[in-house]
């Protein structure tokens, strides 16, 4: 059988024909349904939640994290777990983007994407070809990137050298440009994962790297390409973030690494790889943004918002795990 012609794995658990749902699965689904209903009731009873302005705010909040999370989705599906170097990569690329504004918006954007591809692609090549542990490697990479960015910039904040960046803050149709870009990129990534040989290979490698290698799949190249694409997406996040903040320094990425991981996991993509989708990650990013929004509208502190984000991720991870185990039983 030609492995490349194997159908992609579904997001849903594998179900044997005619097999009835186990009691555990039914309980999990019931819990999930109740949680969703509770969230809907909570949202609808929150003053000003169900307004157009608030919907725009949620999408805008989700957009920057969401674009980076799309990149991380590629890494996670391919079985490389996570990258812990997203924040420093975004910071470094954001600084490059603003300092290149004197060349104009498009060249600065192209340079940023190129640098993003380079920074993350090198890590991907090491993970793909040398089978390096991605967590350990990206911890080391984050220190290296921060060190180099600090050394080159002298630790100072980079201000834009031109005004072109402000076009990224545009709001066509009253919605932030970053929201359109997020939706467009999510569709492209989803199509790539589902409809191309690269996407199918990535799922298979994520599911079982050893079997994929035995089947003759280009494990190293596919993993490296996934990281290259992730680097490009991190660079897009960097450009939008730097444009929004009007300045950039080594702290630009903030908590983006963990926010992106949270979005991917909240979307139900398992950390072990081999499953998941871009649209799930999009849903995860919007879910977390909506939860933070509800809490803010209800007057909860930032600390409570962070706590709830953690609880959402934990619950989804446990449910995904239980459902997977249940479907295998």
């Amino acid at each position: 059988m030609n492995v490349m012609s194997a159908p992609p794995r579904s997001d849903a658990p594998i179900r044997r024909p005619g097999r009835s749902r186990s009691r555990a699965e039914l309980v999990i689904d019931a819990v999930l349904l109740l949680a969703v209903l509770a969230a809907i009731v909570l949202a609808l009873t929150t003053h000003r939640f169900a307004t157009v302005a608030n919907a725009k705010a949620i999408l805008t909040s989700a957009s920057l994290v969401g674009i980076a999370a799309l990149g991380l989705t590629l890494i996670t599906i391919g079985g490389s777990a996570v990258s812990l170097a997203i924040s420093p990569s975004v910071a470094a690329v954001g600084m490059i983007f603003l300092s290149a504004q004197s060349f104009g918006l498009v060249p600065a954007l192209a340079l940023a994407v190129l640098c993003g591809i380079l920074i993350t692609g090198v890590q991907g090549a090491i993970v793909g070809y040398a089978a390096a542990n991605p967590v350990v490697l990206t911890i080391a990479a984050s220190f290296a990137i921060t060190g180099i960015a600090t050394g080159v910039s002298g630790g100072s904040t980079v201000s834009p050298t031109g005004g072109g960046y402000d076009r990224l803050n545009a709001t066509p149709g009253g919605v932030a440009l970053s929201v359109y870009v997020l939706i467009g990129l999510a569709l492209i990534v989803q199509w790539t994962l589902r409809r191309t040989g690269f996407g199918r290979s990535l799922y298979l490698i994520g599911e079982n790297r050893r079997a994929a290698r035995a089947a003759g799949l280009p494990v190293g190249r596919t993993t490296a390409v996934a990281w290259l694409a992730a680097g490009a997406l991190f660079a897009v996040t960097a450009a939008f973030t730097a444009a929004f903040n009007t300045s950039a320094n080594v702290n630009l990425g903030g908590t983006l690494t963990f926010d992106a991981i949270a979005a991917v996991l909240a979307g139900g993509t398992p950390i072990a790889g081999g499953r998941g989708s871009a649209l799930r990650t999009l849903a995860g990013a919007v879910l977390i943004a909506a939860a933070s929004d509800i809490l803010l509208l209800r007057g909860s502190s930032t600390g409570v918002q962070i706590l709830v984000k953690g609880v959402i991720v934990l619950v989804v991870v446990v449910l995904v795990h239980l459902r997977t185990e249940g479907s295998r039983a």
Binding site: A53, N54, K56, I58, S61, D293, L296
Partner: peptide
């Protein structure tokens, strides 16, 4: 992000 949500609120 907080400001975005506050302007919506």
């Amino acid at each position: 992000k907080i400001a975005t949500q506050l302007f919506a609120k």
